[in-house]
Design a protein around this nucleic acid. Sequence first.
RNA 1: CGGGGUGUAGCUCAAUCGGCUAGAGCGCUUGGUUCGGGACCAAGAGGCUCCCGGUUCAAGUCCGGGCACCCCGACCA
Length: 577
Amino acid sequence: MKLGKYLLPTLREAPSDADNVSAKLMVRAGMIRKLAAGIFDWLPLGLRVLRKVERIVRQEMDGIGGQEVWLPVIQPKELWEETGRWGVYGKELLRLEDRKKAQFCFAPTAEEVVTDLVRKEVRSWRQLPLMLYQFGLKFRDEIRPRFGVMRAREFLMKDAYSFHTDDEDATRYYDEVYKAYSRIFERCGLKFKPVEAQSGAIGGAFSHEFMVLAETGEETVVSCTKCAYAANLERAECKAEPPVSNGAPQKLEDLPTPGLYTVADVAKLLGASPKAFLKTQLYVVEGKPVMALVRGDHELNEAKLAKAVGGGAMHRASEAEYQAIVGAKVGFAGPVNLPRFKTPEGKMEEVRIVADHSLQGVTGAVSGANKDDLHLKGIAVGRDFVPESFADLRAAVPEDPCPRCGAKTEFVKGIEVGHVFKLGTKYSKALEATYLDKEQKPQAMVMGCYGIGVSRVVAAAIEQNHDEWGIRWPAAIAPFQVALVPVEHDDPAVKAEADKLYDAFWKAGIECLMDDRAERPGVRFKDIDLIGIPYRIVVSAKTLAAGEVEFKRRESKDFERWKTADALGALKKTLGI
RNA sequence: CGGGGUGUAGCUCAAUCGGCUAGAGCGCUUGGUUCGGGACCAAGAGGCUCCCGGUUCAAGUCCGGGCACCCCGACCA
């Protein structure tokens, strides 16, 4: 490719709305342009990188027996109603209507469609296992798109779905995909870490996320400094701690606390540690109130709470809901003497109480009294109230030991680029995707699903590989392998040599970008650095006089001189081909 | 969806208390001098000042309404 006619609009300054390093650099390097919030044009240079990543992913998917398909982005409502997700997916699902008023959505994922295809076309155990994958445009109407293509609304995803006769085979295959994912991110030149994850809206038994480690990542990973344990903070387990000792069991007593509604305020009044408190938070799950309790010095983890209460639509109680449930101002709720509530059907029911497992056996605790300006002290868990269950409810902190080996943990930031789920039979049962086993009995297929944010990988690679001058592409995903810069563009000898090398490189299968613009050398060097081409060859009258060209690596300040006749061979050696 | 902020040339930004023909730098075009790390000189092109309405002799500037974008909190590859 020659730059003179290549659509590569590089910018000296980043637009003010580009909000992180990769977004700024992608815009400056002429890879992308923003069309609307979370929606981007991909220009030729950006698309080349995207395709490079895509090719690596495709090779690895094919390598584990995947078969590429192409599924619709416009999907009928009926299919989504069969799995119940039309109702639960929420506003993130972009819904559309055709001229006949039929309802559709723009694909945010494709479990429904692929399972529908398989249920119609696969009947026998002999056809399993089967893995189908695609590169598909996805649209998720994110509340707040940001960070360029890293959290876009429209993005390119590789989504893969596997179908198995039984759980054992699905688990075996999950492991194969896991390994293939590791190879993909390695080949892309990324420093990454697979971590245990929440399965979220897609559902399923267990899952892992692949995190690209970068300071600017949005995810927090809890990682053991000794063993292999790593988990998304949302999911990081906390071991039950022995009950804090607050002295001998005490009588339950009123504790007037006018205007003091935070744990910190009341602790100060009492001169007690926040550990002696039962921190109370109210949620509404499937329309019914739930009280969640953690120790005063801990924070609640909503994802864990959701799991503990059995899933379903959940939101934190609003101020009005809170007051209706406990009959007191916010800050004065507690598990003791909690009033019953009236269900929509008019029945009176106890409010469900779930407590963090570190609260088991605690005595002498303090909590709200469900009356304005009043707390209770001397609470004994189990004596004064009995929670429905004890569970791991709190958010992990860096001080927590590793739940596997007990060693020190650390928190690191990551960008989620891939996610593997073991789905089980959630979708196959809902959509009746069955096969006939050897005894001619219909059985639900066991499924797995596996995603990679292809466009996000591009941004993540930049977050991890850049310097003050611009991008530094890992060789495997660089848009071009080498840049060729003829310094004196109007010198016939220089031009002839550059053209000769350019042709020879392409003939040898080396992707070469020649900057033949009539710009001053400095401008062209800056642009080549900005767009991050790994290697640069400069042809100038000066070096040509010695029958040489100059070679430089993007990450290095040093130059090499190559004889023009050896340039192709030397470059091939550098590229390992 | 709450809370905060910003919309002026392709990009980054000015424009005093409401007052003259809305400016600068970069980029773009033409000519010239330059030519190994974002050169210089000269001449140009380029604006529904986000949109609609209002106040005023006068609105980029004030008021009302909308829209877009960005930032801080709940979802996800």
